[in-house]
Computed example of a mutant assay.
Amino acid sequence: MSFTLPELPYSKDALAPHISVQTLEFHHGKHHNTYVVNLNKLIQGTDLASESLETIIQKSAGVPDKSGIFNNAAQVWNHTFYWNCMKPGGGGKPSGPVSEKINQDLGGYEKFVEEFKNAGLTQFGSGWAWLVLKGGKLEVMKTLNADTPLAHGIKPLLTMDVWEHAYYLDYQNRRPDYIDTFISSLINWEFVNSGLS
C-alpha cells in the first residue's frame, strides 16, 4: 500500500493570523508531502510495504539501516497528528477529562503551560514538544528531529512542532512567540480529550 498526504482538517486560512496560508502551503503542501513521497519510495518492494504507518515506525525505530524509513514515517505520522492538535479559535484552558488529568498529574493548567513551553523552548534544533499518557499519567516530553513517543510505547495526546519550518515564515526566529500563540490560540482540546477516551 502507498501512503497519501492527508487533507488538513480545516481550510488553509482557518488558523490565520496565528499561522498563515503561506506557512500551511509550505509546511503541509511541501514538507509533509515530501515525507509521504520519500516514505513510499523507501518502503516500495520491502517487507514494510503493506504495513500500517504505526507498524513501520515501530519496526524501523532504532534500526540503523532503516533510519531513513523511520525518519520519513515518523514525520508523516507526527505532522498528521500535529494538524489535528490545532483548530481555529482553540487554545486556552481545557475542559473535560484532560483538565482533570492536568490538575491531578501536572499540578494545574499553569504548571502544564510552564512545562510545555519549556519543552518547546529547550528543544535544541529541530523537534517536538508533547503531552503524553505514560503509565496512566500525563507527562510533558520533547523529542529530537523525527522521533515520536510512539517509538517508545508512549501514547501521544498533543504535540507542537518546533522545527523552524513550522513557524519561520510567520514568526522568523521568535520561537517563544509561536509557542505562546500555539498554547493561547491554537490547541484543539477536544482532540486531546478524544485521545483520553
Rank of each mutant, 00 (worst) to 15 (best):
L48M: 15
I56C: 08
E54D: 14
F70P: 06
E25G: 13
L39V: 07
G62L: 05
P17W: 08
A61I: 02
P94Y: 12
G90W: 03
H79G: 12
P88H: 09
I69P: 04
V21R: 10
N84S: 14
V21F: 10
L53N: 00
F26L: 15
V76R: 07
G68H: 04
L42S: 05
L53K: 00
K12V: 05
K30A: 00
G90F: 11
G45N: 04
S60A: 14
N40E: 04
V21C: 01
P94Q: 01
F81G: 14
T55S: 14
C85L: 10
G96P: 10
H18L: 13
G108S: 09
L15V: 07
V36C: 01
S20V: 01
N71V: 14
K59Y: 12
C85D: 11
V37Y: 05
I102K: 00
S67H: 05
A61L: 08
T23R: 12
I57V: 14
N78V: 01
K66F: 02
H31C: 11
N72S: 14
N78E: 02
G29H: 03
W83H: 15
V63C: 05
S99N: 07
G89Q: 06
T55E: 07
S67L: 04
L15P: 04
Y82P: 02
N78K: 11
A74W: 00
Q104S: 15
Y35C: 13
E54Y: 10
Q22E: 10
V37K: 13
C85G: 09
S50A: 02
V21D: 06
L48D: 12
K87L: 11
G89N: 12
F70G: 04
S99M: 08
W77F: 14
F70L: 03
D13G: 10
L39D: 02
N72C: 08
S50H: 10
Q58S: 10
N103L: 09
Q44R: 12
P88W: 00
Q22H: 04
G90M: 07
I102R: 04
